[in-house]
Every structure is written in structure tokens, then in C-alpha cells.
Amino acid sequence: MKIIYDLPKSLKKVPAHYCPGCGHGIVHRLVAQVVDELNLGKKIIGVAPVGCAVLAYDYWNFDVSEAAHGRALAVATGIKRCLPDNFVFTYQGDGDLASIGLAETIHTANRGENITCVFINNACYGMTGGQMAPTTLLGQKTATTPKGRESEKKEGWPLQISDIIAGLKGVSFVARSSVSNPARVKQTYGYIKQAFGKQIDKKGFSLVEVLSPCPTIWQKTPYKAGRWVEEKMSKVFPLGIIKK
């Protein structure tokens, strides 16, 4: 028998701690797959966020540094400037990237640092119990918007951070996809590979936003959470390449 769908070598063979149906597991696998495919195993350095994915180094088989909440891109900047021939990426959530780390995000992108950012948008703070994130949809109920997020109550609108980043000159590639069904997973894989490719070609900052289900916090079955990404989230955050 010949294996036709095999797990990447950069992924450890251990069970992950994530909830059933969580998108992190899929994106971890996709990143590992791209690392394998582009043969980056010996040169790759990841920066893990604060959030559910802080333990990403338990699943990836390469060098990883933690970073304080929101500071992943600053840490990545330090790493990349010292080791320009290594391959550096951050893996960050919406709270990390678009709220507490907004300054680091914008300025790292604006400096045109040759770094790739994999941005997981699940429209909430998953690890802390489901509070409102900058990307929470209007009307979406969270622990801190019990009646649903309302812009009239000055709770703001879902922050289109990827579009803002795409507008900066130092940025080479921005795309948004999801992991809500097998076709989208494939698309996400393609985007991550393209983004990593930009770094190899030294083109500057690249970012892939992944709309990712959080069935536990959303209180939906994994399947329905995926449907919600397609039917609701993707309307607010349209999928596709934003900048190339």
C-alpha cells in the first residue's frame, strides 16, 4: 500500500490539547506541511502567541519561541534581523494581533520585515472563556457582550485588520481564507505556501488570515461552527487574496 495523504514530518505524532473541531489543529498541520514541502525544516523558527496556541511547540518539531501577549511580531523582528537567512513566522490570534499587539502588528508590517504571519481569527477570546474580540461580529454574543456586540453601544465594529495591513507599503502578500470545509482548507494551504514564498524571495511582510471555528465558545457543533464561518463570518470578512 502506498500512502497518499500522509502527515507532515514537522508535526509531532502526539494528540493535541485543543477542543474537538477546533481549527488550530488544521492550521498547525498546514503550516507543518508547507515547512516540509518548501524544505524549511532546518531554517524555520516559529513564534507562538499567548492564547490557546501557546503550546504550538508541543506539536511542531522545530524551534519555537514564546512571546508575551501581542508581542510576537516584535520578537520575530529581533529573530529575523539577527538571522536573516532563517525563516521566521508568527502564529497569532485575533486578540494578540488585532487588539493588544496592534502597534507591533502595524509597525512590523510597515517596516516591511521579511516575516510571515499566520493570523487565526475566531471572532472571540477562546482561552479566557469567550470574551469579545476586535473581530467579533455585530450581534455575536460573548462573555463580555452578553446581549450581542452592538456598535451603537460603542462596542465597535469587527476590525478589518488584514485590509488595513494590506494598505501598507512594506507588505507583499495578504490573503484571507478559512478552514471551514475541505476545499477551504486546501485554499488556506495554498495561501500559506504563497506567503512563505514571499519571505523566501525577500519581498517583505506577508500575512494569511484564517477564519477558524471555535465550536466550544460559539456553543455550536463542529459542523455547525464551520457552517457559521461560511454563512456569517465570511460575509463580514470576505475570503480571497487581498494583496499580491
Partner: peptide, 8 residues
Amino acid sequence: CFLICPDA
């Protein structure tokens, strides 16, 4: 199934 599996 391979693509969508969150748990490898």
C-alpha cells in the same frame, strides 16, 4: 477527511 481533520 484528511484535510478537515483537526487532530491529524
